[in-house]
């Protein structure tokens, strides 16, 4: 598999479903998710790994999908925002975002949700500074940071009811 190629067949699991797609090697994971797999939840913004609007979960960790070539995601498990709801019900975290008013224009929210989702998986009771640092790679120009932090805290309570 080490002959240089320009087109590469990849297989990845996206939101629990196995997907096989042939990709151009210079296309990013973000490109393929949005354009080839029809999952437009991950957004395009800065394309330099600063804003986090393109955040997805790759093998259990958040990454900026604009900085991952699709070919690098071969054989990986990807979760996008479309994969957070459980059987069409909003996850406790999604519901918490709505309830605390953490959503304004919404463009950064898929990335925020995924970063929060993984943060809580690794650290079920994060402090406020841990939340702020954990989500610092997700910019929100509407300025919902305080409500987003509250939503993450609320989601931790919810998980224990």
């Amino acid at each position: 598999m080490s002959e240089p190629a320009r087109v590469f067949p990849i297989e990845l699991t996206v939101n629990g479903h196995r997907r096989a797609v042939e990709v151009a090697v210079h296309h990013t994971l973000l490109d393929v998710l949005r354009d080839d797999l029809g999952l437009t939840g991950a957004k395009e913004c800065c394309l330099v790994g600063e804003c986090g609007a393109c955040t997805v979960v790759l093998d259990g960790r958040t990454v900026d999908s604009c900085l991952v070539l699709a070919v690098e995601a071969d054989g990986t498990e990807i979760t996008t925002v479309e994969g957070l709801a459980v059987d069409r019900d909003l996850s406790p975290l999604q519901q918490a975002f709505l309830d605390t008013g953490a959503v304004q224009c919404g463009f950064c929210i898929p990335g925020q949700l995924l970063s929060a989702h993984v943060l809580l998986a690794d650290n079920p009771h994060p402090s406020v500074p841990e939340i702020q640092e954990g989500l610092a790679g997700n910019l929100c120009r509407c300025g919902c940071y305080q409500q987003i932090t509250e939503a993450v805290l609320a989601a931790t309570d919810r998980a224990h009811r």
């Binding site: 240089p4 090697v25 070539l69």
Partner: peptide
């Protein structure tokens, strides 16, 4: 983005040879 060819060696010796 400019296109390029992509290689994914699995052994170090392959990588060195490519380089």
């Amino acid at each position: 983005m400019h296109t390029f060819a992509y290689a994914r060696p699995t052994r170090l010796a392959e990588a060195v040879a490519l380089l």
